[in-house]
Simulated assay, not measured.
Amino acid sequence: MLTRSTGAGLLRGNRRFDLEAGIEATGMGRADVWWRQLQGGGRELVPLLGARVCALGVVRYESLGYQDLAALTYNGAAVPGHPQGINELVTGSVVAVRTRSGQLVKMQVQAYGQDLQIRWQSCPPPVQYRALKVVVGSAPEWLVSRYVVDCVYESPDTSMHPCGQGEFDAGGGVVEDRISDAWGGFPATARVTVAVDFQPGTGLHGSVTRLEPQVGPAGVSLLYEPAQEIKKVKLVFDLTPRAKTQDYLLLRWVYRSGSSAGAGSQRTLTGADLQENVAQHEIAFPPDGSATASVDLTIDGVFQGAELVQFKQRIALPASALAFRFRKQGTGPRYRLEAF
């Protein structure tokens, strides 16, 4: 996790300091430097726990930034601060520190002595961004009433951050936003949730799909196609002989997942729908991973002015389309449907 510690304080003799948190450390844990007091009066600033230092001497503290600190060469040797010998920690001198977790901090000695009066400031790299783009494809208006898209990501410090939202009609739409590395780096994946509300007439319950696309060097680009989630079957009717204006077909269907009955609905094709040589209608079902999904289809109605013999059949899914033709039932006026 990147910290942004800035402050001033006292680094006491023989004490250790945590430059990431900006506090004096107890013991050896969570410390970056040790202002060590040697026997005989010597003093030195010792990097701890993998931290590295680079003594810069008396330079302009305020103008030093991340790019300046990143270009330096750091080492694990102690910085001498001997009152009667080599002293690279005189008042006004600056030491760059690469902390135990790899963050870059500048530290200035404001007053030299057995205790060092210091100020410090972490210098994080410039925030970078990667693009996120989620495209939601279109669906028939009779099927879908609304899409709601919500995008978030978890940064390496385990905090959650929004990165795009959108609400669209059946025509679909595009959500565009950015993912940041400001909280310790880019995440491995984003979390995209797509909620679908169906039209009331379909009888379908809303569905929620959760996706985790990878965050690559170019960001996230995701295409969500409703056809990937929604099962559809097209019903095609060969209208031979030609339907009469008072004819109609009543379609009823119930979706089954294994042995359990699920969503169902119905649709009436009126005489106006049956005036072409071919009539078509799509029925749809919610996402379901069941290997034994099926649909119970029942068709009643009137054809050629006479009551149609009821058609009833269980159809195994997936099935992209079913075609029907009308056949005379015996010698009377009634017709029945045949699937072919």
Rank of each mutant, 00 (worst) to 15 (best):
P162Q: 14
L19W: 09
D32S: 12
R314M: 08
Q84P: 01
L239T: 02
L143N: 05
V194E: 01
V208S: 14
Q114C: 12
G305C: 12
R336T: 13
L317C: 06
V309G: 12
G22A: 04
Y61A: 04
V144S: 09
V254A: 10
Q37R: 09
S93N: 08
L56K: 02
R100S: 13
L132M: 07
S207N: 07
L204C: 13
E88T: 05
I230V: 13
F186M: 04
T6G: 07
E154T: 13
S159L: 13
L249E: 04
D288G: 08
V46G: 12
Q128I: 06
W35T: 00
P124A: 03
G9H: 02
V233C: 08
D157V: 08
Q214K: 03
C151H: 00
L89A: 04
V134R: 03
S259L: 13
I23V: 15
G305I: 10
L116E: 08
L222N: 04
S260C: 02
A243T: 02
P187G: 02
E141A: 14
V175T: 03
D169I: 05
T99I: 05
A227P: 04
T189S: 09
K312H: 15
W120Q: 02
A170L: 07
G13A: 15
K133T: 15
T270N: 09
G164E: 09
L337N: 03
K232D: 00
Q114G: 15
S63K: 07
L308H: 04
L2Y: 14
S294A: 12
V208M: 15
P83L: 11
T158M: 12
G216N: 09
T189F: 08
I299Y: 04
I315V: 15
K106S: 11
D296R: 12
L132H: 05
N75L: 07
E167S: 14
V46C: 08
A190H: 07
A96C: 04
Y66D: 08
N75S: 12
G173F: 12
M1H: 11
R43L: 08
L297S: 04
L204N: 01
P83Y: 11
A190Q: 02
V174N: 05
A339P: 00
H205N: 15
S320P: 06
W120A: 03
V148P: 00
G258N: 09
G271F: 02
L2I: 15
T202Q: 10
G301I: 07
V90L: 12
P140R: 11
K244W: 05
G305N: 10
F198W: 01
L2W: 15
A71G: 01
L11P: 00
V174W: 01
G13I: 11
D169Y: 14
R98N: 02
F285E: 00
A188R: 13
G172T: 12
A190I: 03
W35N: 05
L104S: 05
V97W: 02
S207F: 10
L89R: 00
K133N: 14
Y147S: 03
V295I: 07
L89C: 11
R119V: 00
R100A: 11
R60G: 15
V58C: 14
G42M: 01
P241V: 00
D68K: 11
V94A: 00
Q103F: 10
Y335L: 11
G41W: 09
A139Q: 10
F326C: 06
S294F: 02
E229S: 13
D18V: 06
A272I: 01
E282S: 14
P287N: 01
Y129D: 04
W120G: 01
P333M: 02
A272G: 06
I230A: 00
A31C: 15
